[in-house]
Design a protein around this nucleic acid. Sequence first.
DNA 1: CATGAATGAGAATTCATTCAT
DNA 2: CATGAATGAATTCTCATTCAT
Lengths: 190, 190, 190, 190
Amino acid sequence: MKEEILDKRSAVLKATLELISEQGFHGTPMSQIAQRANIGVGTIYRYFSSKEDLINGLYIDIKTRMTRYVFRDYSENISVSVGLKQLLSNVIHYFIENPMELSFIEQYENSPLITDATREMSMHAAEPLKALFKRAMEQNILKELPFDMLGALFSGAVISLAKLYLSGTAGFDEIYLNAGVDAIWDMIKR
Amino acid sequence: MKEEILDKRSAVLKATLELISEQGFHGTPMSQIAQRANIGVGTIYRYFSSKEDLINGLYIDIKTRMTRYVFRDYSENISVSVGLKQLLSNVIHYFIENPMELSFIEQYENSPLITDATREMSMHAAEPLKALFKRAMEQNILKELPFDMLGALFSGAVISLAKLYLSGTAGFDEIYLNAGVDAIWDMIKR
Amino acid sequence: MKEEILDKRSAVLKATLELISEQGFHGTPMSQIAQRANIGVGTIYRYFSSKEDLINGLYIDIKTRMTRYVFRDYSENISVSVGLKQLLSNVIHYFIENPMELSFIEQYENSPLITDATREMSMHAAEPLKALFKRAMEQNILKELPFDMLGALFSGAVISLAKLYLSGTAGFDEIYLNAGVDAIWDMIKR
Amino acid sequence: MKEEILDKRSAVLKATLELISEQGFHGTPMSQIAQRANIGVGTIYRYFSSKEDLINGLYIDIKTRMTRYVFRDYSENISVSVGLKQLLSNVIHYFIENPMELSFIEQYENSPLITDATREMSMHAAEPLKALFKRAMEQNILKELPFDMLGALFSGAVISLAKLYLSGTAGFDEIYLNAGVDAIWDMIKR
DNA sequence: CATGAATGAGAATTCATTCAT
DNA sequence: CATGAATGAATTCTCATTCAT
């Protein structure tokens, strides 16, 4: 009964993610979330002050877990280029293994629901990446472009690749995926 | 009074784009669209059978205009690599000049509102790009990757770059933009 | 092109009857009536001041034609009992031959749309029947009941019989119909 | 405060009956029903999935109560002819005592809103009457006509009589009513 | 006269949020 | 604390009616 062990807050987040990733924010009433989470509607409001707060909470939760996953094997000991490629690969794999989270993030980041505070928080989560970029710049490994720009190109391409993979239409395997990762690397490397 | 010369259907599309790009689909009631378009609510329904139909119609309208813009200077006479770089540059500039359209497209393509029929139509619009890629492949100019993948990497990076530019935070100019375009080129070129 | 010979007013009435008998008042927009009548919506308003007026006009039209049909072979020369039975039979046959009119009348008479003026008019149409009843009373042919009551019993049973016949479920033929008419006759005859 | 003791579902049905019987289906908005029932609009939808469902629910409710009333004193011990006359009388009295229900039933049964499922249910409610007719046929008490036809003649006349009585114009009393009942009896008896 | 595009009042329905139990 | 019935503001959509052409 893994599901029942989940504390209520987590159960709500899980239900929200599942439902929103396929039905969208506005296609998902609070009542349905409560039902899926096996709790009463009112209970959601003990953990989140409003639906918007819930959405934001879910975003933060996902971003946190993702950052942890993506940097899990990073250490200052490994070379920058290895580190960056590993990072790249991790991001892709995170999304491939968590397609609902990708779907949610894409919806959320392009919606007007996103709070400035949340955006701020998201920036903060990107700090480690920035640090890595900085080290790479110092070693003349990356193109001489603003950090933000490298990040944007990088993440835009990565997410797009993950989406293509998940769409299933392409039908390409791990090998192609690696080729894609290499291509992205070509984009940012000097 | 340019606005009043617009036929009503166009006025509705214009109003919808403006409002949705900043408030989102669900933050924008039909009544507000009507108001902005200076017509009655009922009139919208003479041109679009439902709100969903309106959204889809707007998407198709935008995609059509964008495709026209992006391929406007393309000809079979120019070299493939020049053509591709021009294309790249055009896409970026289209979005920079039409930020609301970028915002709308991003919302729409990640929402559950998107119809299969519309997705189909969108594929169709990508045909010229595919043809160009094909020519490039034959000349061994591009990496040996599936078309879909090249397209995904390409568009993901381009859109991401345009968004960064528009966010204004980067504050970089045309020169940097060109550097970005070159980086994207590095990603797909052999 | 019989349809096109019809003057517009009649075309509107015909279209209204057809549509309302199957879709009901509120399931039938004015625009649909116009379409079926092959005229513009606005034109309806040249002949009828409002939808309500149209409905009332249709009712009066139907009642008039029905009364004419039902009394078509009546004359003071034939005996009262023959005349009454003939009348009875005529009413049934009118409805059987004009099912849409029956459907419309039943809807209309039970709806709150019916005007006092129209009800008045309807009474007036029943005058010949009353006269016939009076003659019958004087000859001690009918039960000693108020005219209104005889009329109510009579018309209630007749309409009910016609509806049953038209429902088709009973599947009975002309012979049974005559037996039904006889039964109704038993109800009012002394 | 009898009204306030009513559970909400019943309060809604009561309000609906009152309003519809005088204003018709389409003259009665959900908001008005809610107001009359002293509840919020949304609450109606906890008990009925739509306005149509509400109307159907009301019809079933009324038919159930009416059937109970009409057969309340029926038993297999009493003679068939007494039973039938009692039934006849009960139907009339039910409608006289519940004029709004008569009005509603008449509107509903002649409207295109009626569902096949509901019609089915209504047939089912007529079973006891059919059984009684059957017994009567076996004893050669009724005319040799199909059950459906006897039922149609019977109910058509009864309802018509009740309506006349309620219209108040006739101004006849219980005695006349009984005479009417006798007349109807003459119609179906052998 | 005929037309049908334009209108907006009005209706059904949904759903985030509250609060009595 | 947890619940879910109750609420009503807000939204989409329809359609009778008008009036410029």
